[in-house]
Write a protein that binds this DNA or RNA. Structure first.
Lengths: 141, 141
DNA sequence: TTGTAATTCAACCATGTGGTTGAATATGCG
DNA sequence: CGCATATTCAACCACATGGTTGAATTACAA
C-alpha cells in the first residue's frame, strides 16, 4: 500500500516487533558485538541476521563502526527513549485503573469489615517492581 | 516464514508500528468509540479500519463491547504497560549516557572554570519533561 | 415487513517481510 | 601473492500486511 510518509517511530516499533531483533538488542545491552557475534545464537543464515541488523540500524536502534572487515555494533538508546516516552502518555490509564479499582472496592465494602485497613493502607499502585532486572517479557532467554 | 511461537509482545509492538492504529489508540484515550467513529478520520474503507481494529484487539490493546449493531471499543492499557516496562530495561542506557557525558565534561574542563558549578549542580538527568501532555511523536495530528 | 444502518466476511491485489542460497567484496594473515 | 574471514548483495520463495470492492449478517426503526 505504498505507505508514503513513514513516521520514524513506525520503524522503531516495527524493529521491536521481532523476537530475534529484541534478543540482539538485549545482547548489545551487554556491550559491543560484531555482526557474526550477534548472528551466532540465532538459528539462521548470516545473511538473514545481517538483514535484521540492518532493520535495527534503519530504526536508529544501533550504530555500526567498521573496523577493517568486521563491523562493531553498539546500542543506540535514543529511539528506545522515544518509544518509552510515547508509551508514557498512556501511563495514566494503567495507573488510573488501580485508583478506580481501589475506589470501587472501598465503596463496595463500605459497610463490610476490611474498610479500615484499606483506608489506612491505600495500596497506592501495587508496583511493577521489576525495572532494574531483565523483564521476562520478550523471550530474552 | 511460519513464525511458530509468536510472543505476545511481538503483536503489541507490531500493532503500535502503524500510524493509523496509533491514532486510533490516541482517539480511544479520549473515551469509548464505535468502529465507525474510529474509522471516520482515516481515509480508508470501513473494512480496512475494521481490520486495524482487529489487530489492536488481537494485541489486547482494546476491548470491544457489542451493543446491538454497534461495537463500542475501549482502551485496554495492560499491554501498553508491558511494553513500557520492557523498554524500561534500557532506561539506564539513555540516562547513563548523560552521566558519561557529564563525567567527560568534568574531566575535560578539570582545569577550566565551570567545574565548581557542575559539581554543585550535577544535572542528574535533564528529564523528559513531557509525560502528561501528548507526545508529538507518532504523528498524532 | 421493509428498508437502512453498523459491521464483518470473502476474494482479490500489490507490496513488504523473513528466510534461503550462491556469488561478490573487501580485509587480514602466513 | 594467495587464501581464509567477515560481511553484504542479489535473486528467489512463502507468507503476512494493508488496502480494495461487493456481498452477507444483524439490529433498529418506520
Amino acid at each position: 500500500m505504498v505507505e508514503l510518509q513513514t513516521h520514524p517511530i513506525d520503524t522503531v516499533f516495527h524493529a521491536l516487533s521481532d523476537g530475534t531483533r529484541r534478543r540482539m538488542l538485549r545482547e548489545l545491552a551487554q556491550g559491543e558485538r560484531t555482526v557474526s557475534q550477534l548472528a551466532e545464537p540465532h538459528d539462521m543464515s548470516l545473511a538473514a541476521a545481517s538483514k535484521h541488523i540492518k532493520v535495527l540500524e534503519g530504526a536508529g536502534l544501533i550504530r555500526r563502526e567498521i573496523h577493517g572487515r568486521t563491523h562493531l555494533c553498539r546500542l543506540e538508546p535514543g529511539p528506545l527513549a522515544t518509544a518509552h516516552e510515547w508509551l508514557t502518555f498512556y501511563e495514566r490509564f494503567w495507573t488510573n485503573r488501580l485508583d478506580i479499582l481501589e475506589r470501587l472496592l472501598r465503596e463496595e465494602d463500605a459497610q463490610k469489615s476490611a474498610r479500615d485497613e484499606l483506608q489506612k493502607n491505600p495500596l497506592k499502585s501495587p508496583a511493577p517492581q521489576k525495572s532494574e532486572t531483565e523483564p521476562e517479557t520478550g523471550e530474552d532467554r
